[in-house]
């Protein structure tokens, strides 16, 4: 009720609101309860996507990772089925890191200097394939903060559900 001053709390508030709203939507569109495994996985994937979407949209568009995340989610769900998502993401990461890099020499330098670790990090953080090292660090820091807040909110939601059931 009281306006939160802490940006993390603000983020948690906004994220929880949006996420619960998205969960509601998923619940509302739920069809007849035939419980095969495929359907369950699909639904959990939808929950996950809803969580990531809420996180990215709360974080705002000034962050590169949130922009990239939203873009990926939108294109994934528009083009193909959700089950191919992970495979396609991996392929896309490979292609885009090859295609988009305007200065291949620079990446070679990075690869030499960090011996693969930084490239690995670039694959994990969304939208980080084309950043320079400095912004990669700051984006990663912001991404970690948001992920931690997301995990906390989701944990508390799960706890709420278990106390209810």
């Amino acid at each position: 009720m009281s306006p939160s001053i802490n940006p993390t709390d603000h983020f948690k508030n906004q994220f929880a609101t949006r996420f619960v709203h998205a969960l509601n939507n998923i619940n509302a569109t739920k069809s007849s309860p035939h419980d095969d495994h495929k359907n369950m996985f699909q639904r959990s994937r939808r929950v996950k996507i809803a969580a990531y979407t809420a996180m990215a949209s709360v974080s705002g568009s000034e962050r590169a990772w949130s922009r990239a995340l939203l873009w990926k989610i939108r294109n994934r769900s528009r083009n193909r089925g959700l089950l191919l998502r992970n495979k396609k993401r991996a392929d896309h990461a490979k292609v885009s890191s090859k295609k988009r890099n305007p200065n291949p020499k620079r990446q070679d330098v990075n690869a030499l200097r960090y011996s693969g670790q930084e490239l690995k990090l670039r694959k994990i953080v969304p939208g980080a394939e084309t950043m320079d090292s400095r912004s990669l660090m700051s984006e990663t820091a912001d991404y970690i903060k948001c992920l931690v807040a997301q995990v906390e909110v989701m944990k508390s939601l799960v706890d709420l559900c278990y106390t209810k059931v």
Binding site: L23, I26, S44, R46, V47, K48, A51, K155
Partner: peptide, 9 residues
């Protein structure tokens, strides 16, 4: 957690 939430949901 999303799997868990889905199950509960």
């Amino acid at each position: 957690l999303s799997m868990k939430l889905e199950a509960v949901n």
